[in-house]
Design a binder for these strands. Sequence first.
DNA 1: TCAATTAGGACCGCAGTGGTACTATTTAAA
DNA 2: TTTAAATAGTACCACTGCGGTCCTAATTGA
Lengths: 168, 168
Amino acid sequence: MIRMSKLADYGLVLMTQFLRSPDSDQNLSARQLAVETRLPLPVASKVLKALTREGLLVSHRGASGGYSLSKAPSRISVAEVLEAVEGPFAMTECVEGSGDCRRELVCPVRSNWQRINVAVKNVLDAISLQDMLEPLPQSLVTLLTDEAAGTGLDPEPHVERREPCEVA
Amino acid sequence: MIRMSKLADYGLVLMTQFLRSPDSDQNLSARQLAVETRLPLPVASKVLKALTREGLLVSHRGASGGYSLSKAPSRISVAEVLEAVEGPFAMTECVEGSGDCRRELVCPVRSNWQRINVAVKNVLDAISLQDMLEPLPQSLVTLLTDEAAGTGLDPEPHVERREPCEVA
DNA sequence: TCAATTAGGACCGCAGTGGTACTATTTAAA
DNA sequence: TTTAAATAGTACCACTGCGGTCCTAATTGA
């Protein structure tokens, strides 16, 4: 499924929550964020801690404390958020080089996984928090998808474009 | 980590194994494939069954039976193989529409996940089995990565290109 | 001083992955 | 006709790690 974890998804939801109010560098408490995002407080708290540890959020302790974005939302990428929560981006085990793969020497696909890994990561790195808010990045996505579809490969129509279901 | 499962990785390794011999539409038994890929026979067997069920392989039962590719390796994409083994491609839960997400109505990122999902899937769909064999698709990957990097977003240099470690 | 925060763990149930085993069915070859 | 070598299908299981909770500091504005 190439699924990313729920926690990472929560990370994105929480990060974008800062952009929903007029001033995006405001201070929001874990409690506020949890309520607004419909997440259980302990869960939101855990994710916020991770995001802070990785430098994407700045925390303010004590009464009337909270969190705020560490930089402009246009300069925070989706990939950054995901990696902050779930660690370095590695689609396969051999990409992160644990090194205990018995197939390593006879594996013909390994070096290409490295490349694919970079390609996918770049897709997620090209999308900023700002982009995630509105259904705007149409140009971006179509660009990416069109390029992917027209790379000189056999034009087998694998692609089945799903209709994105809009939010109310 | 956005990790895909080991089984899916095995699927790719097994599928590409057909291309390592001169005639790619030959008949290979599970036992042969298991030995050549250094995979336990039961594991290889399980994955091969899945690939057959999804129509990517054709099976031949009985003595001197085995598996063979159902179509030209240039017309089989990486995405197809992954989906055959681990089910439909969905990076987040809400993408596959289980529908029990309490955040659904207030979630600002949902519709964009649909798009990102398509974008990533297209990256994997643009790479054929053939491409996976040799470290060839340089043009393809650089194209994808360059396009991703130059989409008019804030040109923050998120991208840290890892040096791909070649196979012997 | 107090209450409201964040920081940092420890802890745990449980689903799902990775892997095994067994039986039934098919079929080329002896 | 028999046999052995295959695949098909399913049940089974150990174990990892995810998602989630809770508790105890440390911090700080009111």
